[in-house]
Amino acid sequence: MDWNVIISYLPRYKDALLLTLRIGWQGVLFALITGILCALVIYLKIPVLRQIIGIYIEVFRNTPLLVQLFFIYFALPKIGLQLSPEACGVLGLSLLGGAYMAETIRSGLENIAVIQSESAESLGMSKSQTFRYVIFPQALSSSVPGIMANVIFLLKETSVFSTISLMDLMFTAKDLIGMYAKTIECLTMLVVFYLIMILPVSILGNILERRLRFAEFGS
């Protein structure tokens, strides 16, 4: 292990980490929004839209992100839809994540015991009130573990961005190995930087999971 080499590589890895984080948090945010909207459409049984979203979820859950990215980045420009690599990354991550989040939140919504909506109705709450104050908060709470698992999954998936020429951690490591052949140092730094990125999220997930467990009653 050559420490001078590691120190001289640090700035490049730091830039790569920032890029990965920038794409990562945007992707996670849009994925969450997409997921909640899609889950709502399915839960509220809105016709036509529900079928379309069902197809979207199945398609994106059953194909790898790498293939989705290649399609967005290389194939779509051929039919006149050109996006910057970074936009492609965010779009790919949001579409993939949206499908996973939708599935998680949907099952959270479906797992709320019937007695909850019955009780709310007997208390004279309207349908929209029931949903807003009773069902949705509980569903969100019970899907927190799933959502956090998805967030970690999405952050891990950012490792494929190097294939569409985004200079993320993976790209940097590969590039430096190719140039200077300091394989051990580069790979060690790669591992450390992924730990720096994902370990806090994992710990935060554990804390949130404990804090937000109020949806216990009746289920």
Partner: peptide
């Protein structure tokens, strides 16, 4: 379990294919 949960599979692939062969 935590290693598998946190490390992207791509990193593991690089470690085994490029790193382990070197070490």
């Amino acid at each position: 379990l935590e290693i598998v949960r946190i490390m992207p599979q791509m990193v593991l692939l690089f470690i085994v294919y490029f790193g382990s062969t070197r070490v």
